[in-house]
Design a protein around this nucleic acid. Structure first.
Lengths: 200, 200
DNA sequence: GTCTATACCTAGATAGAC
DNA sequence: GTCTATCTAGGTATAGAC
């Protein structure tokens, strides 16, 4: 029997809102990032929307979480395959250029969340760690296979790749002609060889 | 004879305000980035400050310009020397970790300025181009000297280094333990060798 | 040139009807 | 659960006195 005040329904509605919000932000950007605009877009009043998410920041973090969730199943294949880091990563970056609003939301919030008191702070810290861990592992495999320089440790390299992709996003927001996948691919290639003998 | 309404004085005062604002933001951060806070800090009323700068955005762009100006004379040595890119760049990054407020201001505004209508848009576009041009030239010299891989062209590499430093700043804002100069140095080292022979 | 005071706006949060 | 209406806060910009 359904619970009193059945709140499975509330959860489902939340998910529905998030999915819709994700589409809207992706397509139309998020302009001034007001709750009201998201509310209009998902077909609710501002108060109606806040009923589900409490505060503005919580709403936006949830949108980013939902994005991660969707991207994860969409883009993650076998982390052990050689294609994982090179191709899947490129695919994510390529995909990002189709969702400028999400890139903007992400970039903006990641700076605002610098303050430890910010409601999104923990999200960004945890996400960063997760990303770097996954990356480092995949990179280490490539190093062990001799396909990637070991002149630099996998953890640092993971951090660098994270920085490159975040930094390129900012450049790209400023100028949509910036070729994000091209730049990342080029870096990857440049690092793809083992270090040379001291003197050939 | 001094001009009527002598405005050399106004310019001097502007400079004075900017210099002071730079110090204040560098040291104390810029919290919520309101005009009032800067005004308090430089010892003017909010209205008094806007008398000099017109709008909030203009004020903030001017602060960033002033920062560039100061850093330029402070950190730029001979662009032809081998130390230029490796050491001077590291010095700038090292210095940045002593001025968190400026890093935050810069990072935040660079995202907000994505909109072509934003008053700081042109500043960021021009600055990015200038940075990359300077970098690319220095990197090309290193390549020609055989000290840096030429598996990747200098322009792309310049873009990547820009992305790395912007991206690391965001990571560092989130977690002050991040070693920015260390990561950049490691990347530089990893790229420091020419590509190896096909099979040793 | 600088201040005080205030107008005005935007936006998030809340109360209460339905 | 959702809306309308309203409250409140905070911030920029401006008017006008000194």
């Amino acid at each position: 029997m359904a619970k009193r005040g059945s709140y499975a329904k509330g959860v489902a509605k939340r998910e529905e809102i998030l999915t819709r919000a994700l589409e809207v932000v992706a397509e139309q950007g998020f302009r001034s990032a007001s709750v009201r605009e998201i509310a209009d877009a998902v077909g609710l009043s501002q108060a109606g929307l806040l009923h589900y998410f409490g505060t503005k920041e919580q709403l936006f973090v949830e949108i980013l979480r939902k994005r991660d969730e969707v991207d994860l199943v969409r883009f993650t294949h076998d982390p052990d395959s050689p294609a994982f880091i090179r191709e899947d990563y490129a695919a994510v970056i390529e995909h990002n250029s189709e969702v400028p609003g999400l890139v903007e939301l992400f970039s903006r919030m990641s700076v605002e969340a610098a303050d430890p008191e910010h409601p999104a702070h923990d999200y960004f810290v945890a996400r960063g760690e997760a990303v770097r861990t996954t990356f480092a592992e995949a990179l280490r495999h490539r190093q062990e296979a001799g396909e990637l320089t070991d002149a630099i440790d996998a953890e640092t390299l993971a951090r660098i790749f994270q920085a490159v992709s975040d930094g390129l996003q900012v450049q790209w927001l400023l100028d949509r002609d910036v070729d994000m996948p091209g730049a990342v691919g080029a870096l990857f290639d440049a690092l793809a060889s083992p270090p040379p003998p001291r003197r050939p």
